[in-house]
């Protein structure tokens, strides 16, 4: 997925769409908006990012999971199989993005890129509702997918690549 930080206005529609689509319990979120302001007043710059699990290629959460509940689905989406998860918290502690949370029902929960929608050929809920169309989703191995096309055209960055997880959430800058 790619997030256009120049188009995102921080409306949090993605957050609400995700909570509704995935029945995220009240008080929790699988995606969130971060605003970073930097510079010296009055020369300030603001970057707005819609953030979620980075579905890392070298995912520490998958590596640390003692039961194999955290796993890669076909295509690279990182998923938690709820009835294999023992709720030990190892994956939560291992995520440098703090993208996971303990669900009140006991298991660990996180962004699934709405795999249930993607399997049907739909886009993730956050992508489909975004009013500024700042989210691009698709298969990175397919050179003609929305996300591959936009990553070829624009400059981008990933968050803390130095943590060594090879994150797959790209921020257009």
């Amino acid at each position: 997925m790619a997030v256009d930080t120049k188009k995102c206005v921080g409306c949090s529609d993605c957050v609400v769409a995700c909570q509704t689509e995935n029945n995220v319990p009240i008080g929790y979120c699988r995606d969130w908006v971060t605003e970073v302001t930097d510079g010296t007043y009055p020369q300030l710059e603001i970057e707005i990012r819609s953030e979620r699990c980075n579905h890392c290629e070298n995912a520490p959460c998958v590596r640390c999971c003692p039961t194999g509940a955290s796993q890669f689905a076909e295509g690279g989406i990182v998923l938690v199989e709820h009835d294999r998860c023992i709720g030990c918290g190892a994956c939560i502690a291992s995520c440098p993005y703090d993208a996971r949370y303990p669900h009140p029902d006991g298991y660990v929960d996180k962004c699934t890129f709405c795999i249930h929608r993607v399997d049907k050929g739909l886009k993730p809920a956050c992508v489909s509702v975004c009013p500024t169309k700042c989210l691009y989703f698709g298969d990175l191995d397919d050179p003609n997918s929305d996300v591959s096309v936009v990553l070829k055209k624009r400059k981008w960055k990933t968050l803390i690549p130095e943590a060594g997880t090879r994150p797959q959430l790209y921020f257009l800058i």
């Binding site: 008080g27 969130w32 971060t34 970073v36 930097d38 953030e51 703090d98 949370y101």
Partner: peptide, 16 residues
Amino acid sequence: MKEELIVSGRMNHLID
């Protein structure tokens, strides 16, 4: 002085 201010909308129990 150059400063950076991060505001996050996330407030997950036991995480934030």
